[in-house]
């Protein structure tokens, strides 16, 4: 088994005007999806991120505000799981509820240094 990280972009977390019911229903779908990894015994590590932060850039190391929640492709968190291959990992990512609100998942193999 190799490790893969799902990087979540956009979705409900950057969608304005969701109703409380819509939020709770959407959350339940995430819980159901994450539970499938647990049931399958796939080791996983998750990390939600807040919708605010700072960006440090350039030779001058200039610190600016951002990224902003208004950005449709804001990174909102990550989840690392085990899968047999990149193709299998991508298939697993298709069941993520993020697409309901126009978000997307970036699937990246973790580069293991010591083999």
């Amino acid at each position: 088994m190799a490790k893969f990280t799902f990087i979540f972009h956009g979705g409900a977390f950057v969608t304005p005007g969701l109703s409380p019911t819509e939020m709770q229903e959407h959350l339940n779908k995430w819980h159901a999806w994450v539970a499938t990894f647990m049931k399958a015994g796939r080791h996983h590590v998750s990390q939600p991120l807040e919708n605010r932060g700072k960006i440090v850039r350039g030779a001058e190391r200039i610190i600016t505000d951002g990224p902003f929640a208004e950005s449709k492709d804001l990174v909102t968190g990550s989840l690392t799981i085990e899968a047999a291959s990149l193709d299998e990992a991508a298939v697993l990512a298709r069941d993520c509820p993020i697409y309901e609100f126009d978000g997307f998942v970036e699937v990246r193999p973790i580069l293991e240094l010591e083999r």
Partner: peptide, 13 residues
């Protein structure tokens, strides 16, 4: 507050 909850609780409440 609700949006933050939805965000933070995605992987467990």
């Amino acid at each position: 507050a609700l949006l933050r909850a939805m965000d933070a609780w995605r992987f467990g409440a």
